[in-house]
Design a protein around this nucleic acid. Structure first.
Length: 410
DNA sequence: TCTGGGGTCCTCAGACGA
DNA sequence: TCTGTCGTCTGAGGACCC
């Protein structure tokens, strides 16, 4: 079973701003380089959809109401919704804040009671949160996700057209549902693979299913070819996975204007390293592989990475290593986006220190103390001195504070 | 039309040791 | 000692997802 909240961020905002209920509302980056994170159904009736550049959304609907978004609040709501799912079954695999897979086979006791369970979930979510969700029921994960799409409300000129909110693909009817769909509907077929398949004359899942496995692995590579061949035959044995652990933690930002000044970029890098270190420490993790990502003015994107002998979780250590990587990059063309991420994560055992302990200790110890001070007095209580210089216009930025593009100049 | 941010997974090439 | 092969690791980049 797959559950997906309807226009989640936008719906949460409409709940807080009922006066906007009949207005086109978008949650996303408000600046020229922002994108739409979620569009209300009224906004969708103007042709606005997620991931659309904010400038284009404004052109399509000049009176659209842009809201900057509140990631922390959405996370809280998400947690409560997930708790409702957990009341139904312990086998819940969240995919993002607004959707999850549920394995309800254990609740079936030999009977197909998934449809009533789906109905119950919708009712409970609406009763407790005043939010609607759509549910797909099928014999495996990817079909359940496709079923959810069929259950979703559809935007129209007069507002959203709500269906039953639940779509069930009965066992034995999987291929009837699947084969007529456009191949682009399959999980793993994006613009690039879609274009490649189209050049091979493959437009529908049926076309794909008719291909020998070898044709697909030759054209798309081993993993993607096998994966799509299986999906096209409605085969997906992936279990609902509970408690998946993060494999990387990173932070990246697009600047309102391209940067060419090395010092300014360096300060941005320190700020991002600091944000990543914060999140690593919160999770009790350290990373061995550091990656710096640079996107130039022409949108060409490169990464430079380095695997370190010792795992890092300190802001200063990460920043220093990141600066060494940045120094290998020619930034004259202008940098549009900069990012820092850590992977090869492992647990660390934290050691608490006081400032008095710091005399004669290492920078990693200082990072621990910084973490503790922020824990007690808030995230802005302490930070790298580089970021406090008058005139830098910089402040510490945590995940979600500017998640959908820059709002104003640096 | 001009493209965010946080991720995951895959491919490929090169280095290196057995 | 030299060569070839294989597996593994690393680094870079691409594609995809929400």
């Amino acid at each position: 079973m797959h559950v997906d909240m309807d226009a989640f961020f936008a719906s949460v905002e409409l709940r807080r701003h009922p006066e906007l209920l009949h207005e086109p509302v978008v949650v996303g980056g408000t600046g020229d380089r922002g994108v739409v994170a979620a569009a209300s159904y009224v906004a969708r009736s103007f042709g606005i959809y997620s991931a659309m550049p904010s400038t284009r959304a404004r052109r399509l609907c000049p009176h659209v109401v842009f809201l900057p978004g509140d990631h922390a609040h959405y996370a809280e709501v998400s947690e409560r919704v997930m708790a409702i799912f957990h009341d139904i079954t312990p086998l819940v695999e969240p995919l993002s804040l607004d959707e999850a897979f549920l394995d309800v086979r254990g609740a079936l006791h030999g009977k197909n009671i998934a449809p009533p369970i789906a109905k119950t979930i919708r009712e409970r979510v609406f009763e407790t949160e005043r939010l609607t969700c759509s549910v797909g029921v099928a014999t495996n994960k990817f079909l359940a996700k496709l079923a959810t799409e069929r259950a979703k409300p559809r935007p129209s000129a007069t507002g959203p057209v709500f269906g039953s909110g639940v779509h069930v693909i009965e066992a034995g009817t999987e291929l009837d549902f699947l084969l007529p769909l456009p191949v682009r509907d399959l999980w793993g077929v994006g613009p690039a693979t879609g274009a490649k398949l189209s050049r091979m004359g493959i437009e529908t899942v049926g076309d794909l299913a008719a291909q020998p496995e070898r044709h697909l692995t030759d054209a798309l590579g081993n993993a993607a070819g096998l994966h799509l061949h299986r999906l096209a035959h409605a085969r997906d044995e992936r279990p609902v996975e509970v408690g998946r652990e993060a494999k990387s933690i990173g932070h990246e930002e697009t600047f309102p204007k391209d940067l060419t000044d090395r010092d300014r970029l360096g300060r941005q890098l320190i700020r991002m390293a600091d944000a990543v270190a914060d999140r690593l420490r919160e999770a009790g993790l350290a990373g061995r592989t550091l990656t710096v990502k640079v996107r130039f003015a022409d949108f060409v994107t490169i990464t430079r990475s380095s695997t370190l002998r010792e795992p890092l979780d300190g802001g200063l250590a990460i920043a220093r290593a990141a600066e060494r990587l940045l120094d290998t990059v020619d930034i004259d063309a202008g940098v549009r986006l900069l990012g820092v991420s850590m992977s090869q994560l492992g647990e660390v055992t934290a050691e608490q220190l006081s400032l008095d302990d710091l005399v004669g200790r290492s920078w990693s110890d200082a990072d621990d103390v910084v973490g503790e001070i922020r824990g007690r007095f808030g995230g802005d209580a302490i930070g790298p001195a580089t970021l406090s210089r008058p005139g830098t216009g910089l402040s510490r930025m945590k995940q979600g504070q500017r998640p959908w593009g820059p709002d104003q100049d640096l």
